[in-house]
Simulated assay, not measured.
Amino acid sequence: MTFPIERHRRLRRTAALRSMVRETILHPDEFIYPIFVTFGTNVKTEIASMPGVFQYSLDRLEEEIKDVIDAGIRSVLLFGIPEHKDAVGTSAFESEGIVQQATRAIKKMAPDMLVVADTCLCEFTDHGHCGLIHHDPVTGVADVDNDSSLEVLVRTAISQAEAGADIIAPSNMMDGFVAAIRAGLDEAGYSHIPIMSYSVKYASAFYGPFREAAQSAPQFGDRKTYQMDPANVREALREADSDVTEGADMLMVKPALAYMDVIKTLKDNFDLPVVAYNVSGEYSMVKAAAASGWIDERKIVMESLLGMKRAGADIIITYHAKDAARWLKEETK
């Protein structure tokens, strides 16, 4: 059929009609809100490059959790800024580590809140890399050693599960990390704990504000030897396929906005839930443009999140989660 018999505008005529035929719908249950926790007392420090996002000490954490619940968010992702750092990231797996303490506190405050623990070493090592450093005895060149890093990551995941984490989310991009963590969790009695794998994590410039927030910038070099080249998509399939084989329960693409094609590729090729991480740089660009009056923040945020969902994301990690959830509530009133 062609015009004038076919008129596409008929289904766009009123708000009710548009709502009735809407193909992609966002819901707060699909959002995960990242939280930064730190040691100290009475700490609520706004991150300069991420307006509206704060570092919280444990004694101030409850106010943030109450706000998250009030917004209608049911899941949080924890990042910790430790009291001490060393070469092997000891504080990542200590029973009284900052993520472990925060997890126990949140589960006490809100037992039904889903706590996702980021499992990486970059926040806990004094060199800022996601694994242990090996120096080549001949050249002296320093690089992240894959296999020895796995041992520490497994210890970290088990420690997080012991503290009450509902989901382990390893973000280190070491080869074999899902298999190692799955085996470690199972052996420790945590076979019921799912793994949300950072399967496709690019060496991206969009992480800049996060590194300020988590105090995790690498002290030398970069992360290009273990995070993915932004030019590659077939490699993303290989990474995700390995994680599926090794026992991942959810597959993540990070960042999101510049990688919508990758989100769709994973959705089309795997039957596990796909997670999109709407990262710090994406958040900060929107906040900066909105503060300058150049864009409508609400409309831009909701359109971006819809784009991620439309591309295939079943779950979205976003610093906009509280605002987006409240805006969705307003739309249903």
Rank of each mutant, 00 (worst) to 15 (best):
S57P: 00
T225R: 13
E83D: 14
D323Q: 14
Y226Q: 10
G307C: 14
T45N: 04
Y259K: 08
A16I: 13
A87W: 08
D186R: 09
I81H: 00
D118F: 00
R22C: 05
A288P: 01
G281L: 13
V233L: 12
R18A: 06
H8I: 15
G128E: 12
L305I: 03
I167D: 08
G72L: 13
G176F: 05
R298K: 15
K107N: 03
V99S: 06
T119N: 13
E62I: 05
G208K: 13
P28E: 12
R104T: 01
A258F: 03
R234C: 08
E62Q: 13
K85H: 01
M50N: 04
G72I: 09
H129W: 06
F36A: 05
S284R: 06
C130R: 07
R18D: 08
A117L: 07
I315N: 05
T125P: 03
A256L: 05
I158P: 05
D70Y: 08
I193T: 13
Y259H: 11
M109I: 13
C120W: 03
L185C: 05
D175V: 13
E151I: 09
T156P: 07
D112P: 00
S49Q: 11
F39P: 00
V116T: 06
E239F: 12
A213V: 00
E63W: 02
A169S: 15
K329V: 05
E297Y: 02
V154A: 04
P34F: 02
K329P: 03
E23L: 15
K44Y: 02
D271N: 15
P170Y: 08
H129Q: 11
D86S: 09
Y202E: 10
F36P: 00
E282F: 00
I317P: 02
F206A: 09
D145E: 11
D29N: 13
P111I: 03
P273Y: 00
A48E: 15
D271Q: 15
A92K: 07
A324N: 08
S199K: 04
E63M: 07
D268F: 03
S148C: 04
V138T: 12
A231I: 11
I106M: 08
D67N: 14
D67H: 10
E282D: 10
L17W: 04
M260G: 01
W294Q: 15
Y226T: 04
G128C: 07
S95A: 09
G140D: 06
H129N: 06
V262R: 02
I315H: 04
R10K: 07
E30D: 12
K322D: 02
G312Y: 04
D136M: 05
G176A: 09
A15K: 10
A214H: 02
C130S: 11
P28N: 09
E187Q: 14
I317F: 00
K309D: 10
E330M: 10
A71C: 08
G189S: 05
M250G: 01
A324I: 04
D145Y: 04
E331T: 08
V88Y: 12
M308C: 12
D29C: 03
V99M: 10
